[in-house]
Nucleic acid binder design. Sequence first.
DNA 1: TACGATAGGGCAATCGTTTGTTCACGACAA
DNA 2: TTGTCGTGAACAAACGATTGCCCTATCGTA
Lengths: 351, 351
Amino acid sequence: MPTTLKELAARAKVHPSTVSRVVNQDPSLRIGPTTRARIEALLRETEYRPNGVARGLKLRQTLVLAVVIPDITNPFFGALFRGIEDGAAPRGYQVLLCNTDGSPDRQRAHLHSLIARRVDGVILASSFLKDQAVRWLRHQRIPYALVNRFSDEGLDPFVGSDDVIGARLATQHLISSGHVRIGHLAGQSTVSTGVLRRRGFQMAMVESRLRAEPELQAEAGFVEDGGMRATERLMALQEPPTAVFAVTDMVAVGAYGVARRLGLRVPEDLAIVGYNDIPLAGRLIPGLTTVHVPIHEFGSAAARLVLEQIDSGQVTPKRVVYAPQLVIRGSTASGAEVLNAVNVASRGIGE
Amino acid sequence: MPTTLKELAARAKVHPSTVSRVVNQDPSLRIGPTTRARIEALLRETEYRPNGVARGLKLRQTLVLAVVIPDITNPFFGALFRGIEDGAAPRGYQVLLCNTDGSPDRQRAHLHSLIARRVDGVILASSFLKDQAVRWLRHQRIPYALVNRFSDEGLDPFVGSDDVIGARLATQHLISSGHVRIGHLAGQSTVSTGVLRRRGFQMAMVESRLRAEPELQAEAGFVEDGGMRATERLMALQEPPTAVFAVTDMVAVGAYGVARRLGLRVPEDLAIVGYNDIPLAGRLIPGLTTVHVPIHEFGSAAARLVLEQIDSGQVTPKRVVYAPQLVIRGSTASGAEVLNAVNVASRGIGE
DNA sequence: TACGATAGGGCAATCGTTTGTTCACGACAA
DNA sequence: TTGTCGTGAACAAACGATTGCCCTATCGTA
């Protein structure tokens, strides 16, 4: 029942196209001052809003971006979403949010709906290394970007950080703190972040002539409960690690829980390093040493990347990569050490 | 460039309407078996997906629900969103997420866009007591529901819990633990939850012949930093409280932070109770005693409420109210006490 | 006076579907 | 042979906007 252009036109005794031109301030055609005034009064009176669906059909744009993530409940994705929204809003875009819970099927189902809806762009933060869905997205010629995780299946528009370097940084920090027996709470090997962070871990170990023993690398997934189970396995070893590098902060949170349950002090009995630097990391007691990445900027950069493609009409496999930075907190050092710690993080670089 | 009905029709040498009828399995008109087979083959071959925008224009439905909240970064809203999505997905709906950061202006702006987009329904979890936007929503005759917070401006479809009872429960618990000087970290008085939880607090105090002194009630807003500032003010009093009831768990988290900084032990020096029982509450050390409400169900119930209205075509000011339950953890009792604690929570009731 | 320029606004096609109605044709009964 | 009925498919009018093009006054100028 909202007002339509046609109704307004009838009331103003003009043709619908004329009303449309007033609404859109069409520069190509000038409207007489009196008609314009009459129509504008009507517009205000009726609080007319053009039907976005009809507009979308005609103009072939919906002003909607879609975000596909595993779980918005995870603080990482909350921050990411805000970044995306902030990047998209200035251009009048609103954002559709889709949770997959890590299921490729749900991801596919969501993507199908999104394509049918003709969303103007898709931001995918839940991709796998071998992800046919990504290939499919590319094939659809719809503007899209991968965030944080990327896919093997070709070169995609991507925003993220260098996971190998970040993981190496984290592990080096543990090594230089004197740890020798260091464990890794690893992510799934089906996901780029899982593979690359493990690689960074191994690289740091080898570079320091330490052995990255398989038994010290336990798959933990990316969230808390996996972190708990993996930590339990590691601490049940004959010779448990004195430090662990967790693939994400949430996994590290799981490690905190187990350490506490086992009566282990952090960092004295078990040092812990995370990845991502979600807000929660700084609130843990002791604070979690972690690899900082600019989550919010991941989001806004991804939004911009997609908007660029929308503007240019081309899918450009541009990659925006931020340098990770180590943030040292209490989970790897005693209080005094934290105060003296030099932040050895590499500088942040732009694209 | 996606395939259209017309193209398919041309290729199958039939009229577009015939293709449409095959796609939608239109029961009103039977299609000959050979034509049908021909068309179906074509549909599979081209992976045809009807243009949702055109469909939306014709059918006057977008299969989109919108959610308006203050900040998805807040765990409460993360859980709420998942509930909404879970309630909406079975019906083929996807969900647009809008953050307002508590700004009425942004809320209005978002609602305007949403109406223009012709979303099928709106779930508003960021309403104020005096909220013209709510009146406006009602006036638009668009299916909507308020969640958690409600508005004064009339009777709206609503899902939430009884804040007065919940707050009373929380405060009574502190009183029965022997506390006399109890503070309240209050929410804004522009929001129903702020007002009602304060009322519940005062009610419990008065019922126990305790004075709810104004100086012990400090406005904290609903998130962490407000909780910190309010706690600081309270603890700086001549005679600081020995316990506080925080309007939300996030505010309670702020109280934890200040307590720690001031060297106060929880619960010995300062007992703390929160509200909502977000996942974080159980992970704090000590665990946060809080008022549990079924956040996820708030979301799915709200989605159902909106879907009902969409189906019936009417705005029904039905209210779904869940009973809050007290969850006792370490922030109000020593370890032994927690083990012995009787859960005095009221029973959960359905609608 | 006649002609061209210009301003102001109407016309109609189009975007991709849906769906009530009409139409052509063959079968069948009267 | 004519009328009726059923089948299978085409027709066309929406849904609500946008926009290139055309039309008609009116004004200025030669």
